[in-house]
């Protein structure tokens, strides 16, 4: 958080109307369909959605690990899709990613020194003893020790390995880190450690996060703004507490009520949750109109024919649903 940043300041990261289609064997998969995001400096924007919602594709588009079919991505005022190779390389230092499976994303034959120090070599930041010093500093920052320098990643538990992944992401002193299900594979006690670490690093280093997860509770805890995705689109966005307390989009409502009610202090009987109907359609054959209409308890005739746009529904909140069409159109933020 950076309380001194005025709200009118240009965001660190902005995506407008991102579309990504994949072609495979004659079918077209619409993975992302018109997603816009804005991440202010020092802030966290959360993306939550079920499998097939397109959230991981958004992560890759944001870092330009994939090129969008259409749309615009700007980082610190630079249009990433028009950036030269040199510009792009300089920008890559400033945007990093942490993946779900730390052991799968670290080379098992590399020692910690090389795994964490590799970005320093790639970007010609430090070598020799300067590199070792920098890696030790990074390890200590994420709660590892200098005695870990010459161990291999497979000698670490999942949580420790994810600390290595985070140290590696921090090596180039980035401004933005995309966390793609970065805590999802961890045991719950270790997950809590990692959430605390990410928040501490944010306040120490002024990082911005695009924090992606399928667990709404985790995203709410981490994010200043939560975006709910369904089949390639953001269907609702707003403050996490408000989304929980007063979901506007029927899908957000379904997601919130499908969460197991876990309030041990109130567990006098057995907790029960609402059982949603249906399963998400395939992104290769999304339903016409609103993509959620086949599962929506409030679907109207219009929902079968016409896709709703994201509309402002209250202060800082927007929902893509015909129920709110009377509202003012959300600015393209």
């Amino acid at each position: 958080m950076s309380p001194d940043a005025p709200t009118t300041e240009a965001p660190l990261f902005e995506a407008r109307d991102l579309v990504k289609r994949f072609r495979s064997r004659g079918t077209v998969v619409q993975a992302v369909n018109g997603v816009s995001l804005r991440i202010p400096r020092g802030r966290t924007v959360g993306l939550v959605g079920e499998s097939g919602s397109g959230k991981s594709t958004v992560a890759r588009l944001a870092l330009r690990l994939l090129d969008p079919t259409s749309g615009q991505v700007t980082f610190d005022g630079v249009d990433l899709l028009r950036a030269s190779r040199g510009q792009m390389q300089a920008l890559r230092r400033r945007m990093q990613i942490v993946f779900q499976d730390p052991l799968g994303s670290l080379n098992p034959r590399m020692r910690v020194l090389d795994a964490v120090g590799e970005p320093l070599a790639v970007h010609r930041i430090a070598k020799g003893s300067a590199r070792v010093d920098r890696v030790v500093e990074l390890l200590e920052r994420v709660g590892l020790r200098s005695s870990d320098l010459y161990r291999f990643s497979h000698q670490f538990s999942g949580g420790q390995a994810q600390r290595i992944g985070i140290a590696r992401a921090l090596a180039t002193d980035p401004d933005l880190i995309v966390c793609d299900e970065a805590v999802s594979a961890l045991d719950v006690s270790v997950q809590a450690q990692m959430l605390n670490l990410l928040k501490r690093l944010q306040s120490e280093l002024g990082l911005s996060y695009l924090f992606i997860a399928h667990d709404l509770n985790v995203v709410r805890y981490m994010a200043d703004e939560v975006c709910v995705m369904y089949l390639g689109q953001i269907v609702e966005r707003g403050d996490g507490d408000t989304l929980f307390a007063d979901p506007r989009h029927p899908y957000t409502g379904m997601l919130v009520s499908a969460l197991p009610e876990f309030a041990p202090e109130r567990a006098d009987g057995r907790a029960r949750r609402a059982v949603p109907r249906g399963e998400p359609a395939s992104p290769s054959s999304p339903p016409p109109g609103c993509r959620f209409h086949p599962r929506c308890p409030k679907a109207m005739q219009r929902c079968r024919e016409e896709a709703p746009a994201l509309h402002g529904v209250a202060d800082g909140r927007a929902a893509a649903c015909h129920l709110f069409d009377a509202g003012r159109e959300a600015s393209a933020r």
Binding site: D187, S189, A192, R220, Y221, D241
Partner: peptide
């Protein structure tokens, strides 16, 4: 106790660190 405390819920305060268990199994 510690395991239950480390589960994020809609009531977990966002401005405080999560109760976590140090170390790993």
């Amino acid at each position: 106790r510690a395991l239950i405390d480390s589960i994020p819920t809609p009531a977990t305060p966002r401005d405080r660190p999560m109760p976590a268990i140090a170390g790993s199994v």
